[in-house]
């Protein structure tokens, strides 16, 4: 089943009278349960593409269809609400709320969705156990290592039961051991829970784990390779 359909997506920035074609006529589909990496050199347009898939940036032309509905028709509060219920985000620098504990950070999105305190608590505990932080649930971000914070961010991204998770350079700030742990967790979630993960990355370790690798250059798809069984 197709989760995301991207049709002839373009993004043009104007930088002091010069037009920059950040994303240039990209057409792509993502199936449910994919573990895909978008790779490419700096300025190739991967983050811009990811932002447009996530509804954080408007395309100049083209369309992103998520679960059958076109995101370009959504504006303001509707778009925010759409993101809340359909998309999970993992950012490069974790971006947890510093005044909340790991558990509260995970619960936060569910509370925004209007779920009851009991449901939020049970699911956040479950998710933090999955990402291996069952013992650190009540720690605030400043008491957690970078790797641990990013695992909380993954738990938070999954808390809203999204259709897919977008991770923008999730391992860029992590050491190799933390990267390995994080990737294992995400891969496990992908295999066991059939959760769709789409990364933008530079990291060879992520590329190695991904089952599909889309390479961008100058905003265009250079290659789109699906590996057999990953690795």
């Amino acid at each position: 089943m197709k989760v995301i359909e991207i049709e002839n997506l373009n993004k043009i920035y104007k930088e002091s009278e010069i037009e920059v074609h950040a994303v240039n006529g990209v057409t792509l589909d993502f199936e449910e349960g994919e573990f895909a990496a978008i790779v490419g050199p700096s300025g190739s347009g991967k983050t811009t593409l990811l932002n447009m898939i996530g509804g954080l940036d408007d395309p100049t032309s083209g369309e992103v269809i998520v679960g059958g509905s076109s995101m370009s028709k959504l504006k303001g509060a509707e778009l925010t609400d759409f993101r809340l219920h359909n998309i999970g985000f993992v950012f490069q620098s974790y971006n947890l709320i510093p005044v909340l504990t790991a558990k509260e950070n995970t619960e936060f999105v569910m509370r925004l969705q209007g779920l009851s305190a009991k449901v939020c608590e049970t699911r956040s505990e479950e998710l933090l156990n999955i990402v291996g932080l069952g013992e650190r649930m009540n720690a605030r971000p400043n008491k957690l290592s970078g790797g641990q914070q990013q695992r909380v961010a993954v738990a938070r991204a999954l808390a809203s039961k999204p259709k897919f998770v977008l991770a923008d350079e999730p391992t860029a700030n992590l050491d190799s051991k933390s990267t390995e742990t994080l990737l294992e967790i995400m891969e496990k979630l992908n295999r066991e829970e059939n959760i769709t993960f789409i990364f933008s990355t530079h990291d060879a370790r992520v590329v190695k784990k991904a089952r599909r690798v889309i390479t961008l250059e100058d905003g265009k798809i250079l290659s789109d390779v699906t590996k057999n069984g990953g690795e």
Binding site: G54, A77, D81, R83, L84, F89, F91, I97, P98, V109
Partner: peptide
């Protein structure tokens, strides 16, 4: 600013 951007990205609307 960064944190507020994140909150808006993950689905916190303007009213909230």
């Amino acid at each position: 600013i960064k944190e507020l951007g994140m909150l808006m990205a993950i689905g916190m609307n303007k009213k909230r």
